[in-house]
């Protein structure tokens, strides 16, 4: 969750209330509540991309229909992402379309380079999916970047050629990782949705390669 200016923005929406097989979700709303944040406090839900584990709470099924979980929020995604997930190329397009009925009237697309809140800019990084985007944060001379699913494991910092089975365009996704590892400055704070403990860190040099170095959060609630 990102707060900037008067805006409270949820970056991606978890896997949802699912506990089966290899999925153990269902904690997002409770963890927000523990912070004093209700669904109505969220101004925008911004999708780095729209795989199921990033939009699980976007809508919830009530009887036979889906309803937006965040009643006052706009839902933001790149147009390329919407085009892909609605298309039959996406093997889960029917499920996506059903869930999207709960929020599609609220969708506002973002453009590559668009500032969605003060100092919070979306940057298209297609590969994992056609509309996958990074979230670039800049304020008072400091800089950060939220990776979305351009990387899934810290080991990929050292091995950007390691691609996950979910990359829609493996070649482009690999190029994105190579660029991130090569060009992300060492003082840039990096956040990754799937890294252990949702941790923040930096990409630091180690010999001839770069590695992930986790940093302590400013505060733990």
């Amino acid at each position: 969750m990102v707060r900037s200016g008067s805006r409270t923005v949820l970056i991606d929406a978890g896997v949802g209330d699912i506990q089966r097989g290899n999925i153990n979700g269902g904690q997002l709303l409770g963890n927000l509540a523990a912070m004093g944040v209700t669904p109505a406090d969220i101004d925008a839900v911004v999708f780095t991309h729209m795989h199921f584990d990033h939009m699980g709470w976007a809508s919830k099924r009530v009887d036979a229909t889906y309803q937006a979980t965040f009643p006052k929020a706009s839902y933001r995604a790149h147009q390329h992402e919407l085009d892909y997930h609605y298309s039959t190329v996406n093997p889960m397009h029917e499920r996506f379309a059903a869930m999207a009925t709960g929020f599609e009237s609220r969708i506002e697309t973002y453009e590559d380079g668009e500032e969605i809140a003060p100092g919070v800019t979306m940057v298209l990084a297609a590969g994992h999916t056609p509309g996958s985007s990074l979230v670039v944060l800049a304020s008072r001379g400091q800089r950060g970047i939220l990776l979305g699913d351009t990387m899934h494991c810290p080991a990929q910092v050292q091995h950007p050629d390691w691609g996950p089975m979910f990359d829609v365009d493996p070649v482009a996704a690999h190029q994105i990782r190579e660029t991130l590892v090569r060009e992300t400055a060492g003082d840039t704070l990096v956040g990754a949705a799937h890294f252990p403990n949702l941790s923040f860190g930096r990409l630091v040099s180690s010999g001839t390669t770069r590695i992930w170095s986790a940093v302590r959060p400013t505060s733990v609630l």
Binding site: G5, G14, I23, N24, G25, L137, A138, G191, T218
Partner: peptide
């Protein structure tokens, strides 16, 4: 996990988990 907050200038980023896959 307990939500944790990091700041970048005036921007706050709080990691809020939904679980694991």
């Amino acid at each position: 996990l307990s939500p944790s907050t990091t700041h970048i200038g005036d921007i706050s980023i709080t990691s809020v988990t939904d679980g694991t896959v």
